[in-house]
């Protein structure tokens, strides 16, 4: 009986190995998917990978269509994108399509018929979680006024050199959009390393429209967020209204808090305003902040 069990296990293992190659896409499958995306994808569309790690698709997807696939991307709202193409491999071992759909489907609606290319599936969805963007700090950074601000209000300017606003002091004190990881998620965000001490690093943006949601999204990049060592200090990032001096948003990131931190406030209707985006931390060590500030409309929701 013991031997029977062992032989049965071995036969099942053999079946696994024999079936596996048929569950893997060929280069031709990927090229066919890429052709469809090239023909049908619109500006603003995105591709979401399922399972999240199946990144070979990046080799083939047209470069102008952003590809999302990171640990946790199943739950990503992808608010920047009105439509999302899900490029899936549901036949891979341990692919949990139901689990993926449970995270992905709310507020989304399938458009058209999904297609198959070998084991690859491609399905288009209308993204009800999309929030049209009226202001993005990362896009507007070149026109920002950047400076180091002391508690008494004195300022030291960080002049723009065509690529970044560089501050006096250490070379990491500058403001520019960059790609960074915040808890596995790739984000193009404004690099704003906390300067240390009581001073703040401030970027001032004009023309933020009223009557919208003002969102602050950011965090400490990579492994620097993880240590809880007592010598590190809490990082504060926030947004102030320049005219009134009132604080619109503030987020505290204590040592050990990983991931993208988010806060939102609804701006009153009215004229566009100037906002001060700032960051500070008493001890600058390992306080590598990357953030973005957005003015967004409410989620569009799904039609029908």
């Amino acid at each position: 009986m013991e031997l029977g069990g062992l032989v049965l296990v071995a036969l099942l293992c053999l079946v696994f190995h024999l079936r596996l190659p048929g569950r893997l896409p060929s280069e031709g499958d990927y090229r066919a998917v890429a052709e469809r995306l090239k023909a049908e994808a619109r500006p603003g569309d995105a591709v979401l990978l399922f399972p999240w790690w199946a990144e070979r698709a990046r080799l083939f997807v047209p470069p102008d269509v952003p590809v999302y696939g990171y640990l946790g991307s199943d739950r990503d709202d992808l608010t920047a994108h009105p439509r999302v193409w899900v490029l899936g491999q549901p036949e891979l071992p341990r692919s949990d399509e139901d689990g993926f759909l449970a995270s992905f489907l709310p507020e989304r609606r399938a458009v058209g018929t999904p297609t198959r290319e070998g084991p690859l599936s491609l399905a288009l969805y209308e993204n009800g979680r999309h929030r049209p963007r009226r202001f993005v700090a990362t896009d507007a950074y070149a026109k920002a006024r950047v400076y180091l601000e002391s508690p008494d209000g004195t300022r030291r300017d960080c002049p723009f050199d065509g690529r970044a606003h560089r501050c006096p002091g250490p070379s990491h004190l500058y403001v520019a959009p960059e790609w960074h990881e915040i808890l596995y998620e790739p984000r193009r965000c404004l690099w704003m390393h906390a300067p240390g001490g009581p001073q703040r690093l401030v970027a001032e943006f004009d023309g933020v429209p009223g009557g919208l949601g003002l969102r602050l999204e950011g965090g400490i990049i990579w492994e620097h967020a993880w240590p809880k060592d007592a010598r590190f200090t809490t990082t504060y990032m926030g947004v102030d209204d320049e005219a009134s001096g009132s604080q619109l948003l503030e987020v505290a990131v204590p040592p050990g808090l990983e991931g993208v931190q988010k806060a939102e406030v609804r701006l009153p209707e009215g004229e566009a305003r100037t906002v001060k985006v700032w960051v500070r931390s008493e001890n600058a060590d390992r306080r590598q902040v990357c953030l973005d500030v957005l003015a967004v409309e409410p989620a569009v929701g799904v039609r029908g």
Binding site: W53, E55, L59, E181, P186, E223
Partner: peptide, 27 residues
Amino acid sequence: FREHEFLTWQAFGTRTPVTGLYLDETP
């Protein structure tokens, strides 16, 4: 080490790789 790949995106201005070693689809 995910940060290292994103630093490459930043340095090269592209998110599209040219090739890779993918074993049974895993990068």
